[in-house]
């Protein structure tokens, strides 16, 4: 058994140590907010936070994650995540929405470290997150809006 810390709770999982976190979250723990998009860290749909840093769960083996704080979209509730969600709803960013868990976690991590990002900062932080609906223009707007919301 491997002990993981997910969204602040300790979870015992039975998967083999080389199993990607993505599939443990989705199939074993039922946390389906973390999406399967490519399986090769090319699309960002499976983004989670590992100790606050965005990471691709499809390339993170659970055996390496004991003692690491794992945050998924279901548990992302800090000020940055809340502001990003509010901005996403206000600006109506999602279309199909399948990539948005990953987009939101990448954006929240950006804002946690860079409270007033430029367009270039946003592009650099979000480049790993594909959106086939091409909601990118609204993502940029919404990250700026989330920064305003956080400023209060």
């Amino acid at each position: 058994m491997i002990t993981l810390t997910i969204n602040g709770a300790r979870r015992e999982v039975s998967a083999a140590p080389d199993t990607p976190l993505l599939w443990v979250l989705r199939d074993e723990l039922g946390l389906t907010g973390t999406k399967f998009g490519c399986g090769v860290a090319s699309c960002g749909a499976c983004t989670v936070h590992l100790d606050g840093v965005p990471a691709r769960s499809c390339q993170s083996a659970v055996g390496d994650l004991e003692g690491v704080e794992i945050t998924t979209i279901e548990g992302a509730s800090d000020a940055a995540a809340k502001a990003v969600r509010a901005a996403w709803v206000e600006i109506e960013v999602p279309q199909c929405g399948y990539c948005q868990s990953g987009q939101i976690l990448s954006a929240a991590a950006l804002l946690a470290g860079t409270p007033k990002p430029t367009d270039a900062d946003i592009d650099a932080a979000m480049e790993g997150n594909l959106c086939r609906c091409a909601t990118y223009a609204r993502i940029r707007k919404a990250v700026h809006r989330a920064a305003e919301i956080m400023e209060g």
């Binding site: 946390l31 389906t32 999406k35 979209i73 709803v89 109506e92 960013v93 999602p94 929405g97």
Partner: peptide
């Protein structure tokens, strides 16, 4: 008219997509 789906789609879209069917 506010989109009926955006809030859920910012919270992990639980149960919305076929891929997530359990």
């Amino acid at each position: 008219f506010p989109r009926v789906d955006v809030t859920r789609k910012t919270e992990g879209s639980t149960g919305m997509f076929g891929m997530d069917a359990r």
